[in-house]
Design a protein around this nucleic acid. Structure first.
Lengths: 251, 251
DNA sequence: TTCGAATTATGAACCTGATTCAAAAAATGA
DNA sequence: TCATTTTTTGAATCAGGTTCATAATTCGAA
């Protein structure tokens, strides 16, 4: 069945083309402006062909998020493999999230959008599953770091499973970014979006978990140096994974 | 100008009618199903009349969120006035958030939706401002609790402003709920949505902030009792504020 | 190489639902 | 009572996602 294999390859390539172009258009004009017919035309295909790949516009958006999820997972895996203290790995994941949002602001907005009832429910079940399947190794990875820290005696288990414990820093990271992302909110508060502040908060949580070594968050010099270092390491991995895949609008 | 006053009153009443009915329909059928023409008809008005109040469908959704925000603020104010330790007030706010989501699951989903680029950008500027204006007293309230705790010597300021510090528990609370709300995610992880877990995480953070009195999160009995107590207090306030305004689908 | 069957691509037509606006109705106040 | 202004109405318009009859292409057997 070498013929079918070739067809499958071509089909997959075309799907990537659609996704690439969609990502480009979204980064340029926003999610709102993405239209199916123009997208198809931009790829030099008919509208109907697009629908051979995606059951609906929402399905296409989920497909984009699923693809980003794969990249994120690979980045996270490399971070987990870094030769740094376990506690710093958690910070490094936050740094990665931070950088990803900096380089691909439209991805972050898209992600926020697709998990919305309206979009999620309009995508195909298989595409939804794809995203959820991505999240499983992701959570395994994070809880793996927590597990390792517990085993190394750096972190008491508080009688929780590693997975349960790992939810806390994850939630804090997501929550911080969400608040910041919410248009105009920080401005309304009279706050500036200082990413160092986010890392301080994370350290407060990790301190509360008694995750060794504790860090004094008033020690700005140490904190800054630490984040600088992590940023550099993560950025290296980041560019190694996707050297050119940069959000054109915001970089 | 007593005539104009009357007209204004009637206009405001009609707007509330539209919002009430919209909330009802959304709670019953989901955001996706809400349609402008049927909504107008259900209120015994023409479609065009709806557009005298809301510049677009998205604008109507923001209006709903703005109204919910007012209720939330009043509830939070009452919680802040409770005669309980400052630290517990933060927990009580989380409990309130929790209860609100339990009683009005569709509100939470709606809120997630409106802060999305696609919806936010399609609403009128004035409506967006309304929501942001709500958030200002809300943040003042939360940071006021933090401030009071600092002044009482229960919480070191870590050389941050009260407002900056208050972002941490807020972000954790939002983040936890967001993760839980994300359809199928916890199921994919093999986690159950144990709200006690969320409170444990919050205590970890508050402990990390060295917010006295610290709580040993392995002491489930104390934690359970504390949350029970807060739940009862908040529920009382909650029902006092909106005794019948219950989400029909999920209660 | 040729041909009929099977698969795939096409894009104009269709359909849903938000929005508009010319006409009708109601309110105002002289 | 009536001319004027304000408000309401809902059918028409419009946008854009989706479908599907038709055309084009690919395939493999003869």
């Amino acid at each position: 069945m070498t013929v079918n294999e070739r067809k499958e390859r071509q089909r997959a390539a075309r799907e990537q083309l659609f996704l690439d172009k969609a990502a480009e258009l979204i980064a340029r004009d926003g999610i709102l402006q993405l239209q199916m017919a123009p997208l198809a035309k931009a790829c030099e295909y008919a509208t109907g062909t697009l629908y051979q790949h995606f059951s609906s516009k929402e399905d296409l958006l989920l497909a984009l998020v699923a693809r980003n999820g794969c990249n994120q997972l690979r980045l996270f895996e490399q971070i987990a493999a870094l030769a740094i203290p376990h506690r710093n790995k958690i910070l490094a994941l936050c740094v990665a999230e931070d950088l990803a949002r900096q380089y691909h602001p439209s991805h972050a907005r898209l992600e926020q959008y697709v998990f919305t009832e309206v979009v999620w429910e309009n995508a195909s079940a298989s595409r939804r599953q794809l995203i959820l399947d991505n999240s499983k190794p992701l959570s395994a990875l994070v809880s793996g770091i927590v597990r390792a820290a517990i085993d190394a005696g750096e972190l008491p288990d508080h009688q929780c499973s590693a997975l349960e414990l790992s939810i806390a820093p994850w939630a804090l990271c997501c929550g911080s970014h969400n608040l910041e992302q919410t248009a105009g909110l920080f401005e309304a508060f009279g706050l500036n979006k200082d990413s160092l502040q986010r890392y301080r908060h994370m350290h407060l949580l990790l301190n509360g978990m008694q995750w060794q070594p504790l860090l004094d968050i008033t020690d700005t010099a140490t904190l800054t140096a630490q984040i600088q270092d992590l940023k550099q390491r993560v950025e290296q991995l980041f560019h190694h994974l996707c050297p050119l895949n940069v959000d054109p609008l915001n970089v």
